[in-house]
Write a protein that binds this DNA or RNA. Structure first.
Lengths: 140, 140
DNA sequence: GAACATTCCTTTGTATACGAACTATTAATC
DNA sequence: GATTAATAGTTCGTATACAAAGGAATGTTC
């Protein structure tokens, strides 16, 4: 970390932002070979957890804005990572499914996420790892 | 925090991203009345720390991409928060200065940042606060 | 069952983010 | 001192983010 104003590291928004920025950047590099972005990877993990979710449900689960999701889901449908299917019971809703292409890479992609996790956490003791996760969770 | 796949909270990128997202969102609301974005506020804090920095130095200090900074600094110059002055010694470089308008709000804006900090940290004990800051710092 | 409210999703506009390519300028090297 | 390398910023393309407004479908209420 570069030299910072003594006060700035006391800025939690900054600390959280930069910690996220670095983690995001590393995971992004890992995912590049699949042609997936971080958010797109997260969407797949969401759909593997509960196939057939609507966009609204996915937004709630992953805490993303519906307007943001709209674009992400459109790109993922275009590039063949997910499928949108009209819900016969509700004309407003589309149910979301991971594609075959996505399912075939499922194990690999989940492994990538676990690897990213380890890379981030390996510098900490097990106690610190648990603590960090708990503290972050309490912030959400 | 909504119910999540058991595994997802084990995803540090997600945890960091959402913790940042929430902190960012709250600070954004605080800053709205000033017509400043979070990044623009951070730039001002940087310039108050070291007036006359170049964009490259600011990027290093705040860990932002030069392409990102280019747009931010342009908007801040347009809206009168900073001034860009040609460096007589180096034709490539522009030195950056906070404007009068910015300086007049300096104390208030720093107070807003401290308030945001407290809002984020108040749920933790002092020991937890210090620990969280240390752990985040180690991630950067 | 018509008027109103709510929900789902999209669209628009603005602001980050960042890789990549580009220009202009300065530095380094021989 | 001309060639090459490195640096400072900008521009372009793509991908989040999110507020606000809009359109379509469903629910509610009387």
């Amino acid at each position: 970390m570069p030299k910072l104003p003594e006060d700035l590291p006391e800025c939690m928004v900054f600390l959280l932002g930069k910690a996220y920025q670095k983690a995001h950047s590393n995971f992004k590099k890992q995912l590049k070979k699949y042609g997936l972005t971080n958010m797109q990877h997260l969407v797949l993990e969401g759909l593997w957890y509960d196939e057939g979710m609507t966009a609204a449900e996915l937004c709630k689960l992953l805490i993303i804005d519906k307007a943001t999701a709209s674009g992400i889901l459109e790109r993922m449908a275009e590039t063949g990572w997910i499928m949108k299917k009209q819900d016969p019971d509700d004309g407003r809703t589309q149910k979301l499914y991971p594609s075959e292409k996505a399912n075939q890479l499922k194990e690999k992609l989940i492994q990538e996420r676990k690897k990213a996790n380890q890379n981030i956490l390996k510098k900490f003791s097990v106690e610190e790892q648990l603590l960090l996760k708990r503290l972050l969770r309490d912030l959400i």
